[in-house]
Simulated assay, not measured.
Amino acid sequence: MSNNSQSQSVMIISVVIGSLCGCLVVVIIVVVLLVARFRRRSASLNLNVEIPVTINYSAPGMDLTMTGSGAGLPMLEQTSIARQTTLIEQIGCGRYGNVWKGRWMEQYVAVKVFASKDEQSWAREVEIYQTAMLRHTNILGFIAADNNDNGAWTQLWLVTDYCEFGSLFDFLTQNAIDGKTMLKLVESASAGLAHLHLAVQGLQGKPAIAHRDIKSRNYLVKKDCSCCLGDFGLAVSHDVLSNRLTIPQTTKVGTIRYMAPEILDESMNYGSFEAYKQADIYSLALVIWEITSRCSLTGDIEDYRQPYEDMVEADPSFEEMAQVVSKKQVRPLIPDNWQQDKLICRVSQIIEECWSNSPSARLSALRIKKSLKQMMNNS
């Protein structure tokens, strides 16, 4: 073959290879543009949002019936949900802001709206809700968190499951209950706290968490008349391996009416996580007392009363509660007729053990849950 022929062949091969490379580059660019366009369109249509589902998972020694709370959805999907949520009506007013009934997609949700000045409380509550393995049927289901800026001010949103019966306080105010409902309420209330207090070891483990503001207003009542626990703005978490406490940076404290005697007399060891759990148990005892006092098994059902309602002012001071609870060691009245029914009598014994003046004498949340579960199975 002559040199000219060889040169022509090399030139032709080079041209072909160059053309193929050019076509390949064009194809890659087109594919990249199409993918980017599809992603933008998917985001605007919210095609990637995962609808919260109920998952049942069990492990040895644990009851982890899960709902929408826990680690939550990816942040992009959370903001998509919040921006697609329409507020319908205000259904509550709390320490940090208002609670609204809203609609997202085809379901009702609850939207807790924080003012920008309460950003620390909002951030802490979101952090707790996104804790790995927090999901449980008796923990309020977390859906999304986002901020809503309307130009004049910024609102911080926390979107959760909607519980149509409202808070336990509202439910008890409006309803007398039978023995079966009473047991379901007290067992589920203790089960939520037991799961919160539980530490789960492992890479995807869960720290132990103390609530620090247990009260009937912070439990929500679901359609099946079971409770779920919410409002984690004051929660303390404990890393068991490092023995490190994570305490929210806020000047706010729990609800004075429900404060344990060791908090009121200022003897509590704030460096001990066990002390926080024991204080929660005292508060839970008051909630169980509230529930039991509205049960028809006690005989004559009186109107709903808050704990210590006949002993302190409607909005008691710290000093007033300390005088009654810590110095005089008075507790809400357990009437004599509570001893006439075996079920109510056993529940009242649990109450008295849990509001003991000695923190170490109180039952654990897990022990309470197991005792009440056994009573449910035997009733």
Rank of each mutant, 00 (worst) to 15 (best):
residue 200 V to M: 09
residue 80 S to Y: 09
residue 131 T to K: 12
residue 144 A to W: 02
residue 87 L to A: 08
residue 202 G to W: 12
residue 202 G to Y: 09
residue 105 M to S: 11
residue 164 E to W: 02
residue 105 M to C: 04
residue 114 F to K: 00
residue 204 Q to I: 07
residue 177 I to P: 04
residue 141 G to M: 04
residue 89 E to D: 12
residue 124 R to E: 03
residue 134 L to Q: 02
residue 87 L to M: 14
residue 157 W to C: 01
residue 125 E to Y: 09
residue 92 G to R: 10
residue 181 T to W: 12
residue 135 R to H: 06
residue 123 A to F: 14
residue 177 I to C: 07
residue 164 E to M: 10
residue 140 L to N: 07
residue 126 V to G: 01
residue 172 L to F: 00
residue 161 D to P: 12
residue 126 V to A: 08
residue 128 I to G: 02
residue 135 R to S: 13
residue 96 Y to V: 07
residue 196 L to E: 01
residue 76 L to R: 12
residue 91 I to H: 06
residue 140 L to A: 07
residue 113 V to E: 06
residue 150 N to S: 08
residue 152 A to Y: 12
residue 199 A to I: 01
residue 118 D to Q: 12
residue 137 T to N: 09
residue 136 H to W: 06
residue 153 W to D: 07
residue 142 F to M: 09
residue 107 Q to G: 09
residue 156 L to G: 02
residue 86 T to K: 14
residue 174 Q to G: 03
residue 87 L to P: 08
residue 71 A to K: 11
residue 146 D to S: 15
residue 157 W to T: 00
residue 190 S to A: 15
residue 95 R to C: 13
residue 108 Y to L: 13
residue 163 C to Q: 13
residue 100 W to Q: 03
residue 123 A to I: 12
residue 105 M to T: 03
residue 135 R to G: 07
residue 85 T to F: 14
residue 97 G to V: 14
residue 204 Q to S: 12
residue 195 H to L: 02
residue 147 N to T: 14
residue 89 E to F: 11
residue 112 K to Y: 09
residue 144 A to M: 04
residue 139 I to Y: 07
residue 153 W to T: 10
residue 131 T to N: 10
residue 114 F to N: 01
residue 119 E to N: 11
residue 83 R to W: 11
residue 180 K to A: 09
residue 91 I to G: 07
residue 183 L to Q: 01
residue 169 F to E: 05
